[in-house]
Design a protein around this nucleic acid. Structure first.
Lengths: 198, 198
DNA sequence: GTATGTATACTAACCAGTGAATATACACAA
DNA sequence: TTGTGTATATTCACTGGTTAGTATACATAC
């Protein structure tokens, strides 16, 4: 049976993900990550150039699964565009009610590293959010919405706002409030609720 | 000439504010704060019980001025409710374009301390956001909006979302996009754009 | 015998908080 | 005016612990 090419590296990233997400980047030492992965720090430094490198790998590993989850929630909901987008927020609210939920790893990392604009972790986080925005924009464009980019950005703002507010208030119902706002904005853009603004 | 009662404490808080806001809580040592304030660490520990205590003082000092600024922007703008609220976002966008802007200190601190739910700094941040929400809710209630709390929460979500997104993308125009969304939501709630949802 | 991977043991720096001593201000008595 | 006690405010020097990263040697595979 052929083993996967880099199981060790994978195991390190998984250990790092659990610790970095739950405790924060700066609170977790490289030694702790190595211990959780079942090897020594020196071995970890054989696979990763630096702690920053490991942080980048942690975020990169979250990128695809996170987006896939949003797409899944969108796809498996029956209804029109407003309802499907609102479903993303409703499902997120369910996740956020788990005790171990700690917000969005990308946003928390960027907040922790706000003084390092060129840091790779921030670029990865920004790229992640842009992928989500792009997907929404394309979806809205397909539905003939007049300014799909603006609407996609507004939904992104509500999404990230709910991450921040729920993290601060420990009240997941804000996520559903954000979902209602998203639905209202989309319905308005679809022209169901009114006229064009002048 | 009677000196102010506690100039030293004030000076320490100002030094801490500049450093904590620009560099982050965990990146700044107590020694650095003391040096910036022009005294030794031991003196700082005479005035503050611990670093956490200093962090709490830093956030408490931001609370009132921040809210006052929002109220000022709201008050000095001519127009209806949607325009006045949108003005907050427009003014915030102007602030966010300054190179030294690093987002919302309350949100960044809470992101940094996401694993410590009972931490005083998080309670202070939550109280700050609640004051803003309360002020909006009262303002909306005066205008006869049907569900003023929900609308206030939606505006708060847009505000904090724009803090997060602008910090990540370094693109202050998102703040104006958030302002447009806020205006749309308020106009909808005022019934200018359509009917009540069922 | 060479490339890949792992471990032990170390360095050098950083950092929150403290012990012990000292300086300053001011109230009050002589 | 001078002396004395006390609370306030400040400093130097230190401890104990943590941490990113490394020098060196050892193992295993092919």
């Amino acid at each position: 049976m052929p083993r996967p090419p880099e199981p060790t590296r994978e195991r390190i990233v998984q250990a790092a993900s659990a610790l970095f997400y739950n405790e924060g980047i700066r609170r977790v030492s490289v030694d702790e990550v190595a211990a959780k992965a079942g090897l020594t720090k020196r071995t970890l430094y054989y696979h990763f150039k630096s702690k920053d490198d490991l942080v980048a790998a942690y975020l990169a590993a979250r990128d695809q699964p996170n987006l896939a989850l949003f797409r899944k929630w969108f796809a498996e909901t029956d209804g029109g565009l407003p309802v499907k987008v609102e479903a993303i927020f409703k499902n997120l609210a369910r996740s956020a009610r788990h005790p171990k939920w700690k917000g969005c790893g990308f946003l928390r990392t960027s907040a922790e590293l706000a003084n390092m604009p060129g840091h790779p972790a921030i670029r990865i986080g920004a790229a992640h959010k842009k992928k989500f925005e792009d997907w929404l924009r394309a979806t809205f464009a397909e539905q003939g919405i007049a300014d799909p980019l603006k609407l996609a950005r507004q939904i992104l703002l509500l999404l990230d706002g709910s991450f921040a507010v729920v993290l601060l208030h420990r009240d997941a119902s804000y996520m559903e409030t954000a979902g209602e706002a998203a639905r209202t904005l989309i319905e308005t853009a679809l022209g169901r609720l009114g006229r064009k603004r002048g």
